[in-house]
Write a protein that binds this DNA or RNA. Structure first.
Lengths: 138, 138
DNA sequence: CCTTGACCTTCCCATGATGGGAAGCCCCAT
DNA sequence: ATGGGGCTTCCCATCATGGGAAGGTCAAGG
């Protein structure tokens, strides 16, 4: 695929309505116009930038809408950035905790290991943190 | 669940062999020993630290093995940190690219938008980057 | 003209970790 | 003993993607 999107994914995107049905030859093969290829490339690139497929629908609509407001595009991008940064923060917290544990582990032939010791702890008693909700349930 | 693991997940972990089958009462209910609860808490905490379920099997084996070497535990943790950092880097690159695009977007009522303009570009011509393989295929 | 191989199509299944919901038991308190 | 709130299993959905089977199609070479 010249667009960087596999045939499987094109079928999937058509099914889910992200993209319109692509024209077919008389024998059933998909025939891609230049515009189709461009659209698929657009989708591909948006995925690479972390947009969920669902949100790409909105991007495509703006892309096609010649009278769009660039503010709408910018807002989608900004929300995406915020989401990416949320994920980054979560991963960083994991890595940092693990790093602290690993640093305090001797890493030799002895069995004592603060990493394992930490893992079996009840973390709910350990860190009060913030309260998302009355955590009673769960 | 006192362990922070839902019943659904316990079933799943049993099915996939991550944890052994938990004892049942005569009527089929799971009966959790203190050790079971501790084990489930261990799994939960390891998940929270980003370990894939598959790798938690190895952690559990080390946890149970009183003659383990702490170096083995530390190695798993170190690999996990590296993996987390790989993911963080990927997300940071996405966020940074998007941020650059958003910065250059006026964000007003005009339709011109460098974000959309970038998305429809063929990124393969844009960045030579590294060469993973004769990218001919695909 | 017919075969062959490469490519396309659809359909079904799998991934990883989790939740939702239905149908059906079971247990305890009233 | 009855009702409500456990628990159980089984099936389906998520999200984006790939694998593979079965079958149609196309172009090139004999």
């Amino acid at each position: 695929m010249a667009s960087g999107v596999s045939a499987k994914m094109i079928r999937y995107y058509e099914e889910t309505g992200l993209i319109p049905q692509i024209k077919r030859s008389s024998s059933g093969y998909r025939v891609y116009s230049d515009r189709d290829v461009q659209m698929l490339r657009f989708v591909r690139r948006a995925r690479d930038l972390g947009f969920p497929v669902e949100e790409i629908g909105g991007l495509l609509a703006l892309w096609r809408d010649k009278s769009r407001h660039s503010s709408d595009v910018k807002q989608l991008a900004t929300e995406r950035i915020a989401e990416l940064q949320r994920k980054i923060r979560a991963l960083e917290e994991m890595a940092s905790t693990l790093q602290t544990l690993a640093n305090s582990c001797s890493g030799d032939s002895r069995p004592e290991c603060p990493i394992l010791a930490d893992l079996e702890k009840d973390e709910r008693l350990a860190k009060p943190r913030h309260r998302p909700e009355p955590t009673a349930a769960r």
